[in-house]
Structure formats: C-alpha cells, structure tokens
C-alpha cells in the first residue's frame, strides 16, 4: 500500500476541553482501504470520528482527512421520530455540494433514487425513516454518503442491532465501496469480524495498535485494548480467538 494517505494522524490528541480522552494517534490510511476501528465503550471511537468530521479540533498534533468525510451514524442516534422518508434522508447528501438555500434539484433527486437502489432500497424510498428496520436505516444512511460522493466514509458501529442477513448485505456493500477506491473507517466491537478489514486501529483512550489484522490483533494488543471486556479463548498457532463482553450501565 504505497498510495498517498487520505486519512492521516500524527501525534494527535482529542478531547472536550479537559484532559484528552484520546491521544497518541499516529496512523496513515491509504485510499481504497477498509479500516476496522476497535475499542471498548468509552475507548475513543466516537471521539475519533468527531475529530475526523471536524466537530472537534485536535488538542495536540495533526489530524487530516482528504476531502470531507461522510459520517454514517448509529441509526438510533438519529431522530427516528423526525418526519422524513428514506428518499429525503438520501437527498440530504446533496447538501455537501453547497447551495443549501436552494431546493434539491432534479439531478439531486435522481442521484438519491439511484443510491437507494444501489443499497437495495429502491422500493422503500417513500417509507418513513423511523419505520424501517435497523439494517434498512443503516443502508439509507450509506445511500446518503453515496449521494454526498464522499471518498472517506466513517461508519459508527454500523452492524450494531442489525440482523445477520442484513449485516451480510451491508458488509458486501463495504467491499463494493472499497473496490471503487473509497476509504472506510468502521468502528466495531466485534474482534472476529475486524479480521475482514485491510487494517485495524485499536483504541483505548490512546492508540494501542495500527496495522493489518494479522500483525495487530495479538493477545497483548487485545488485552490492552479491551482490558476486562475481553475473554481470550485460545491463542494457539492460528489467529487469536477472543470475545468481547460489553458492560452496560443501564
């Protein structure tokens, strides 16, 4: 991977005014790469994305993204009671072209319809966003990123709460997007599925590791990343098998 990096962190630290909640970020992601961002709850995954979107300025070092990245939220962090259809949400992607004060053009509408078809939701374009299933909502948000035509996509736990069949469809979509030369940063809890990414970035309030899954996902890194949230099942000759156990406060 010799291409110029599209996402670059050098000595970056991010925080919300007090002590940094994420530091020692040092990585370079080439174009056309998928990166699994691993870490426990509160490990800094969402903070990293906030920094990459520009909602947080680095408190130290540098954090750069080529172009404007698309942010694909966890769908239950969107307003599910807001009266918008799947097509309306996809159309929001055209705001990235500026001219926010004008109504969406016919070309924008066509792009939004095509994007919904691409994610397999052409028939649901008139359905209210909040009435779609979790997996469908996730795909609508990906369609919005496609309308935006972002080269870098930040996906926040896109498979959380999604049924296995939908998850498979969404993962297929990731491969297709990467093959088009787009760069995907996908935050996830799932250590095993992270092996399918080209690269992994392990965070636990700081950068623990960055590299290919084979290099990075060793026992030491997983334990430093997840602390008490991980149970290592075996670390024989093959890759380490491990499960994360999420602690929920509620």
């Amino acid at each position: 991977m010799t291409a110029a990096p599209v996402v670059l962190a050098s000595g970056a630290a991010l925080g919300y005014g007090g002590a940094p909640v994420l530091q020692d970020l040092d990585f370079a992601v080439p174009a056309g790469t998928s990166v699994g961002v691993l870490g426990p709850n509160g490990g800094g995954k969402t903070t990293l994305f906030a920094g990459l979107v520009g909602a947080l300025a680095p408190e130290a070092g540098e954090l750069e993204v080529q172009g404007r990245p698309a942010y694909v939220a966890q769908t239950d962090r969107t307003r599910l009671d807001f009266p918008v259809s799947a097509l309306d949400v996809a159309l929001m992607g055209s705001l990235a072209r500026g001219r926010w004060w004008l109504p969406a053009s016919r070309a924008d509408r066509r792009a939004a319809s095509l994007s919904l078809e691409r994610v397999g939701l052409g028939a649901e374009s008139g359905t209210r966003f909040g009435e779609l299933s979790g997996g469908q909502r996730q795909r609508v948000l990906i369609a919005r990123a496609l309308v935006q035509d972002a080269r870098v996509l930040l996906l926040d736990e896109p498979l959380a709460g999604v049924d296995p069949a939908s998850a498979e469809g969404i993962e297929g979509l990731f491969s297709a997007l990467r093959d088009e030369g787009r760069t995907l940063l996908v935050s996830t809890h799932d250590v095993q599925s992270a092996r399918a990414f080209d690269l992994v970035l392990c965070l636990n309030r700081r950068q623990v590791a960055f590299g290919t899954p084979a290099e990075a996902l060793g026992r030491d890194v997983l334990e430093a990343t997840y602390g008490s949230e991980i149970v290592v099942l075996d670390d024989g000759d093959g890759p380490v098998r491990a499960v994360t156990v999420q602690h929920h406060d509620h």
């Binding site: 994305f49 404007r68 939220a73 918008v84 929001m92 705001l95 990235a96 948000l141 930040l154």
Partner: peptide, 18 residues
C-alpha cells in the same frame, strides 16, 4: 434543508458541510 438535516442528525449534517 439545513434545518431538516441538522434536526435529523447533527453530526451527519456537519459532515455535509452544515
């Protein structure tokens, strides 16, 4: 459009340049 995009998903709206 900015009002709708921001009300629906503020972080997503920021990534759209709003």
């Amino acid at each position: 459009r900015p009002l709708a995009a921001t009300a629906f998903d503020p972080v997503g709206a920021r990534s759209l340049g709003i």
